[in-house]
Computed example of a mutant assay.
Amino acid sequence: MLLTMTKKSSKAPAKKPAAKAAAKPAAKKTATKAASTKVAKTQLVELVADKTGLTKKQSEEAVSAMLDAVVSAVKGGQSVGLPGLGTLSVKATAARTGVRPGTSEKIQIPAGKKVAFKVASTLKGNL
C-alpha cells in the first residue's frame, strides 16, 4: 500500500501541476484550523481586555498574576478550584515496576507526584 501511494504521488505532479497547487492551500487551512483550537496566552489577554475594558498591558499583568498564583499553589501541594472550569490538584504516585520499551528490561519507577485536573460538572454537562 505504501508503494502505491508513493507511485501516485510521484506521477501526480507530472500530470496535474494544478492539483498539487490546489492541495497545498487546503493543507495550510487544516494546519491553521488545528492551531486555532488552542487559546494562547496572548489571545487570553486580548479576551480579558475586551471583556473588562482594561488595557492589554493591564490584562497581561492580571493574567500573568493569576497564572503565577495557580502555579505556586499547585507547587505548594494545594488544590486550586477554578469555578466553572475545574480543580487542579497534586496526587502522589506509587513506586512501580515498568518495562523499558526497547529491551523489555524490567525497571523500577520511583514514587512521585503528578498534577491532576477534575473538570467541573457544570462544564462537563455543557460539552
Rank of each mutant, 00 (worst) to 15 (best):
M1Q: 12
M1G: 14
M1A: 14
M1D: 11
M5V: 14
M5S: 10
K7Y: 10
S10N: 13
P13T: 08
A14T: 14
A14M: 12
A14H: 11
K15H: 11
K16F: 13
K16A: 13
P17G: 08
A18C: 00
A18W: 06
A18R: 08
P25H: 07
P25I: 06
A27L: 15
A27C: 10
A27T: 12
K28D: 13
T30C: 08
A31E: 13
T32M: 09
K33Q: 07
K33Y: 04
A34N: 11
A35V: 02
S36W: 00
S36Y: 00
T37I: 08
K38M: 09
K41G: 01
K41N: 02
T42F: 00
Q43V: 06
Q43W: 05
L44T: 02
L44E: 01
V45G: 05
E46P: 01
L47T: 14
L47M: 14
L47Q: 15
V48L: 10
V48Y: 11
V48G: 04
V48K: 02
A49V: 01
A49S: 12
D50C: 01
D50P: 01
K51W: 06
T52H: 09
L54D: 10
T55H: 04
K56G: 06
K57P: 05
Q58P: 08
E60V: 05
E60F: 04
E60I: 04
A62L: 14
A62V: 15
A65F: 09
M66H: 01
L67E: 02
L67P: 03
L67M: 14
L67W: 02
D68F: 03
A69C: 09
V70A: 04
V70F: 03
V71Y: 05
A73F: 02
V74I: 13
K75L: 01
G76T: 08
G77D: 05
G77Y: 05
G77N: 05
G77P: 04
Q78H: 10
Q78W: 01
S79G: 07
S79R: 12
S79I: 06
V80P: 04
V80H: 04
L82H: 01
L82W: 03
G84W: 08
G84A: 07
G84Y: 06
G84C: 10
G84R: 04
L85T: 04
L85N: 02
L88E: 02
L88N: 00
L88V: 03
L88M: 03
V90L: 09
A92N: 12
A92F: 03
A92R: 13
T93G: 01
A94P: 11
A94C: 05
A95M: 10
R96C: 07
G98M: 09
G98D: 10
V99E: 07
V99P: 08
R100Y: 07
P101A: 03
G102L: 15
G102K: 15
G102H: 11
S104R: 15
E105L: 07
E105S: 11
K106F: 01
I107L: 09
I107S: 03
Q108M: 06
G112V: 04
K114Q: 10
V115P: 00
A116F: 07
F117N: 03
F117H: 02
K118W: 05
V119E: 11
A120F: 08
T122Y: 02
L123P: 00
G125M: 02
G125F: 03
N126M: 11
N126C: 00
L127W: 06
L127C: 05
